[in-house]
């Protein structure tokens, strides 16, 4: 029993230590509990709330994003359809314009050709008229010549007229 030759005083709760432990632990609990653990507890609770909120908000934002994307796609599809419609319309319009131009050109060409034909006809008529005039003139000239020869012989006159007429026929 060597052990108990010394004073095993840790097992004897002495009044001083009881008193001071009560005071110190009581004060520690009161002060640190009230002014540190309390606010820390609240801060942690608040932060957890904030984190939860942030997560919820992120989920909400993601959902909104998905909605927005769907909407965007819809708009894009619509735009694409519209574009192809416009292209189609433009092509059609272009084709119509070309066709129209072609027709117009044809008509113009026809008109020009007709004008030319008319001109030719006119010119021909003028030329014929001139020819007729010239023929008349020649006839007159011949007649003059015939008339001048008439004074010489009447047989000769006839011969000459026949010759002249043959000449005209040849022409």
């Amino acid at each position: 029993m060597i052990l108990f030759l010394s004073d095993f005083n840790v097992i004897k709760p002495d009044f001083g230590l009881i008193f001071w432990t009560t005071v110190i632990f009581g004060l520690f609990w009161l002060l640190v509990g009230k002014f540190a653990f309390g606010p820390i507890k609240e801060a942690l609770r608040k932060r957890e709330g904030d984190i939860q909120d942030a997560i919820d908000q992120a989920a909400k934002a993601r959902e909104e994003m998905a909605n927005l994307k769907a909407e965007n796609e819809k708009i894009l599809a619509e735009a694409r359809a519209e574009r192809s419609q416009i292209l189609k319309d433009a092509k059609e319009a272009g084709a119509a314009t070309v066709e129209d131009a072609k027709n117009k050109a044809k008509e113009e060409a026809q008109r020009i050709v007709n004008n030319a034909k008319n001109e030719i006809e006119n010119q021909k008529k003028a030329a014929v008229a001139e020819l007729k005039n010239m023929t008349g003139q020649m006839a007159i000239t011949i007649a003059e010549k015939v008339l001048s020869k008439e004074l010489d012989k009447s047989g000769e006159q006839e011969k000459l007229v026949n010759t002249l007429i043959d000449e005209i026929k040849l022409n």
Binding site: F8, G16, L17
Partner: peptide
């Protein structure tokens, strides 16, 4: 005499001639 202790003599302590409310090593 050792200081008074609150074990009621069970562990060899008890009320003695004086009380020690010192700021001890543990305090």
């Amino acid at each position: 005499d050792a200081k008074s202790t609150a074990d009621g003599g069970i562990f060899g302590g008890g009320i003695t001639s004086f009380y020690d409310l010192s700021i001890t090593k543990n305090v």
